[in-house]
Protein backbone atom coordinates (compact mmCIF):
# COMPACT_ATOMS: atom_id res chain seq x y z
CA UNK A 1 0.00 0.00 0.00
CA UNK A 2 2.89 2.34 0.70
CA UNK A 3 3.92 2.54 -2.92
CA UNK A 4 0.47 3.65 -4.05
CA UNK A 5 1.00 6.73 -6.26
CA UNK A 6 -0.63 9.96 -5.13
CA UNK A 7 -2.85 10.66 -8.19
CA UNK A 8 -4.28 7.17 -7.85
CA UNK A 9 -5.16 7.75 -4.20
CA UNK A 10 -6.93 10.96 -5.14
CA UNK A 11 -8.85 9.33 -7.99
CA UNK A 12 -9.76 6.37 -5.85
CA UNK A 13 -11.19 8.50 -3.03
CA UNK A 14 -12.94 11.00 -5.29
CA UNK A 15 -14.49 8.83 -7.97
CA UNK A 16 -14.02 5.08 -7.81
CA UNK A 17 -14.83 4.70 -4.13
CA UNK A 18 -16.81 7.90 -3.84
CA UNK A 19 -17.50 8.43 -0.15
CA UNK A 20 -21.17 9.19 -0.60
CA UNK A 21 -22.27 7.03 -3.50
CA UNK A 22 -20.12 3.94 -3.05
CA UNK A 23 -19.25 3.86 0.66
CA UNK A 24 -22.44 5.43 2.04
CA UNK A 25 -20.68 7.98 4.21
CA UNK A 26 -22.19 11.38 4.85
CA UNK A 27 -25.70 10.57 3.66
CA UNK A 28 -27.36 13.02 6.08
CA UNK A 29 -25.86 16.22 4.59
CA UNK A 30 -26.09 14.63 1.14
CA UNK A 31 -29.87 14.47 1.48
CA UNK A 32 -30.24 17.51 3.70
CA UNK A 33 -28.18 20.25 2.03
CA UNK A 34 -28.53 19.28 -1.61
CA UNK A 35 -31.61 21.35 -2.44
CA UNK A 36 -29.67 24.31 -3.87
CA UNK A 37 -26.39 24.34 -5.81
CA UNK A 38 -24.94 27.29 -3.92
CA UNK A 39 -25.40 25.83 -0.45
CA UNK A 40 -24.24 22.47 -1.72
CA UNK A 41 -21.01 24.02 -2.99
CA UNK A 42 -20.36 25.85 0.29
CA UNK A 43 -21.14 22.77 2.34
CA UNK A 44 -18.77 20.77 0.16
CA UNK A 45 -15.96 23.25 0.70
CA UNK A 46 -16.53 23.40 4.47
CA UNK A 47 -16.45 19.61 4.62
CA UNK A 48 -13.32 19.48 2.49
CA UNK A 49 -11.59 21.88 4.87
CA UNK A 50 -12.62 19.95 7.98
CA UNK A 51 -11.47 16.75 6.28
CA UNK A 52 -8.00 18.15 5.61
CA UNK A 53 -7.60 19.46 9.17
CA UNK A 54 -8.87 16.32 10.84
CA UNK A 55 -6.87 14.07 8.52
CA UNK A 56 -3.65 15.82 9.49
CA UNK A 57 -4.62 15.75 13.17
CA UNK A 58 -5.64 12.11 13.01
CA UNK A 59 -2.26 11.21 11.55
CA UNK A 60 -0.50 12.89 14.46
CA UNK A 61 -2.76 11.32 17.05
CA UNK A 62 -2.35 7.87 15.61
CA UNK A 63 1.42 8.25 15.67
CA UNK A 64 1.33 9.36 19.31
CA UNK A 65 -1.12 6.67 20.45
CA UNK A 66 0.84 3.93 18.71
CA UNK A 67 3.98 5.19 20.42
CA UNK A 68 2.26 5.04 23.82
CA UNK A 69 0.47 1.75 22.99
CA UNK A 70 -2.92 3.31 23.69
CA UNK A 71 -4.67 2.30 20.46
CA UNK A 72 -7.99 1.68 22.21
CA UNK A 73 -8.29 5.43 22.81
CA UNK A 74 -8.11 6.12 19.08
CA UNK A 75 -11.83 6.50 18.46
CA UNK A 76 -12.38 8.87 21.40
CA UNK A 77 -9.40 11.04 20.41
CA UNK A 78 -10.43 11.20 16.75
CA UNK A 79 -13.95 12.33 17.53
CA UNK A 80 -12.70 14.95 19.99
CA UNK A 81 -10.33 16.38 17.37
CA UNK A 82 -13.02 16.43 14.71
CA UNK A 83 -15.41 18.22 17.05
CA UNK A 84 -12.82 20.93 17.71
CA UNK A 85 -11.97 21.27 14.02
CA UNK A 86 -15.66 21.80 13.26
CA UNK A 87 -15.86 24.42 16.00
CA UNK A 88 -12.91 26.19 14.37
CA UNK A 89 -14.55 26.22 10.94
CA UNK A 90 -17.79 27.41 12.49
CA UNK A 91 -16.10 30.40 14.15
CA UNK A 92 -14.18 31.17 10.94
CA UNK A 93 -17.30 31.11 8.75
CA UNK A 94 -19.32 33.13 11.25
CA UNK A 95 -16.66 35.86 11.27
CA UNK A 96 -15.95 36.00 7.54
CA UNK A 97 -19.37 35.36 6.01
CA UNK A 98 -22.50 35.66 8.18
CA UNK A 99 -24.72 35.04 5.14
CA UNK A 100 -23.05 31.71 4.46
CA UNK A 101 -23.28 30.91 8.17
CA UNK A 102 -27.05 31.38 8.07
CA UNK A 103 -27.55 29.40 4.87
CA UNK A 104 -25.63 26.38 6.20
CA UNK A 105 -27.64 26.58 9.40
CA UNK A 106 -27.77 23.50 11.57
CA UNK A 107 -25.68 21.49 9.12
CA UNK A 108 -22.47 23.26 10.04
CA UNK A 109 -22.25 21.92 13.60
CA UNK A 110 -23.58 18.64 12.26
CA UNK A 111 -20.37 18.16 10.27
CA UNK A 112 -19.16 16.71 13.57
CA UNK A 113 -21.54 13.82 13.18
CA UNK A 114 -20.83 13.52 9.45
CA UNK A 115 -19.57 9.99 9.23
CA UNK A 116 -17.52 10.81 6.14
CA UNK A 117 -15.03 12.67 8.33
CA UNK A 118 -14.61 10.05 11.03
CA UNK A 119 -14.68 7.39 8.31
CA UNK A 120 -11.83 9.14 6.53
CA UNK A 121 -9.73 9.21 9.70
CA UNK A 122 -10.42 5.52 10.35
CA UNK A 123 -9.73 4.44 6.76
CA UNK A 124 -6.44 6.27 6.50
CA UNK A 125 -5.36 4.53 9.70
CA UNK A 126 -6.34 1.08 8.40
CA UNK A 127 -4.60 1.73 5.09
CA UNK A 128 -1.44 2.92 6.86
CA UNK A 129 -1.00 5.97 4.66
CA UNK A 130 1.91 8.29 5.42
CA UNK A 131 1.36 11.99 6.07
CA UNK A 132 1.29 13.20 2.44
CA UNK A 133 -0.78 10.25 1.30
CA UNK A 134 -3.28 10.98 4.09
CA UNK A 135 -3.65 14.59 3.00
CA UNK A 136 -4.14 13.60 -0.64
CA UNK A 137 -6.67 10.99 0.44
CA UNK A 138 -8.54 13.65 2.44
CA UNK A 139 -8.50 16.05 -0.51
CA UNK A 140 -9.84 13.32 -2.78
CA UNK A 141 -12.57 12.38 -0.34
CA UNK A 142 -13.59 16.03 0.07
CA UNK A 143 -13.61 16.59 -3.69
CA UNK A 144 -15.70 13.45 -4.17
CA UNK A 145 -18.13 14.58 -1.51
CA UNK A 146 -18.48 18.00 -3.14
CA UNK A 147 -18.94 16.39 -6.55
CA UNK A 148 -21.72 14.10 -5.33
CA UNK A 149 -23.41 16.97 -3.52
CA UNK A 150 -23.26 19.23 -6.60
CA UNK A 151 -24.60 16.52 -8.93
CA UNK A 152 -27.46 15.86 -6.57
CA UNK A 153 -28.22 19.57 -6.13
CA UNK A 154 -28.26 20.12 -9.90
CA UNK A 155 -30.67 17.25 -10.39
CA UNK A 156 -32.94 18.37 -7.58
CA UNK A 157 -33.06 21.97 -8.86
CA UNK A 158 -34.32 20.65 -12.20
CA UNK A 159 -36.68 18.26 -10.50
CA UNK A 160 -38.29 21.02 -8.43
CA UNK A 161 -39.96 22.21 -11.66
CA UNK A 162 -41.12 18.76 -12.71
CA UNK A 163 -44.46 17.26 -11.83
CA UNK A 164 -44.09 14.09 -9.79
CA UNK A 165 -46.76 11.88 -8.20
CA UNK A 166 -47.76 12.87 -4.66
CA UNK A 167 -46.64 9.57 -3.27
CA UNK A 168 -43.01 10.06 -4.29
CA UNK A 169 -42.58 13.54 -2.79
CA UNK A 170 -39.59 14.27 -0.59
CA UNK A 171 -37.01 11.80 0.61
CA UNK A 172 -38.26 8.83 -1.40
CA UNK A 173 -37.57 10.62 -4.67
CA UNK A 174 -34.15 11.85 -3.50
CA UNK A 175 -33.17 8.31 -2.59
CA UNK A 176 -34.19 6.97 -5.98
CA UNK A 177 -32.11 9.72 -7.61
CA UNK A 178 -29.17 8.86 -5.38
CA UNK A 179 -29.55 5.24 -6.41
CA UNK A 180 -29.29 6.18 -10.09
CA UNK A 181 -26.23 8.35 -9.40
CA UNK A 182 -24.67 5.49 -7.47
CA UNK A 183 -25.34 3.20 -10.43
CA UNK A 184 -23.49 5.66 -12.66
CA UNK A 185 -20.49 5.76 -10.32
CA UNK A 186 -20.33 1.98 -10.31
CA UNK A 187 -19.22 2.32 -13.90
CA UNK A 188 -15.90 3.63 -12.60
CA UNK A 189 -15.20 0.48 -10.60
CA UNK A 190 -11.81 -0.97 -11.40
CA UNK A 191 -10.49 2.34 -12.73
CA UNK A 192 -8.37 3.05 -9.66
CA UNK A 193 -6.79 -0.39 -9.53
CA UNK A 194 -8.07 -2.41 -6.58
CA UNK A 195 -10.64 -1.38 -4.05
CA UNK A 196 -10.82 -0.66 -0.35
Amino acid sequence: MHAEPLPLIFLNAAIVNNFVLALFLGICPFLGVSAKKETAWNMGLATLFVMLVSSAAAYGINWLLTLLELEFLRLICYIAVIASAVQLVEMFVKKTSPALFRSLGIFLPLITTNCAILGLALFQTTKEYDFVQSLVYAAGAGAGFTLALMLMAGLREKLALAKVPDVSQGAALSLMLAGLLSLVFMGFAGLGGGHG
Binding site: L21, A22, L23, F24, D166, V167, S168, Q169, G170, A171, A172, L173, L175, M176, A178, G179, L180, S182, L183, M186
Partner: peptide, 22 residues
Protein backbone atom coordinates in the same frame (compact mmCIF):
# COMPACT_ATOMS: atom_id res chain seq x y z
CA UNK B 1 -26.62 -6.09 -2.71
CA UNK B 2 -24.39 -3.46 -4.34
CA UNK B 3 -24.55 0.19 -3.22
CA UNK B 4 -27.31 1.36 -5.62
CA UNK B 5 -29.61 -1.35 -4.28
CA UNK B 6 -29.47 0.22 -0.83
CA UNK B 7 -30.77 3.52 -2.16
CA UNK B 8 -33.43 1.82 -4.26
CA UNK B 9 -34.79 -0.44 -1.52
CA UNK B 10 -34.90 2.34 1.08
CA UNK B 11 -36.57 4.60 -1.50
CA UNK B 12 -39.12 1.88 -2.20
CA UNK B 13 -39.92 1.46 1.51
CA UNK B 14 -40.40 5.21 1.86
CA UNK B 15 -42.69 5.18 -1.19
CA UNK B 16 -44.72 2.43 0.45
CA UNK B 17 -45.05 4.36 3.72
CA UNK B 18 -45.98 7.53 1.82
CA UNK B 19 -48.63 5.59 -0.03
CA UNK B 20 -50.02 4.20 3.23
CA UNK B 21 -50.16 7.69 4.74
CA UNK B 22 -51.84 9.24 1.72
Amino acid sequence: ILPPGGFFVLGAWLLYFNWLRL
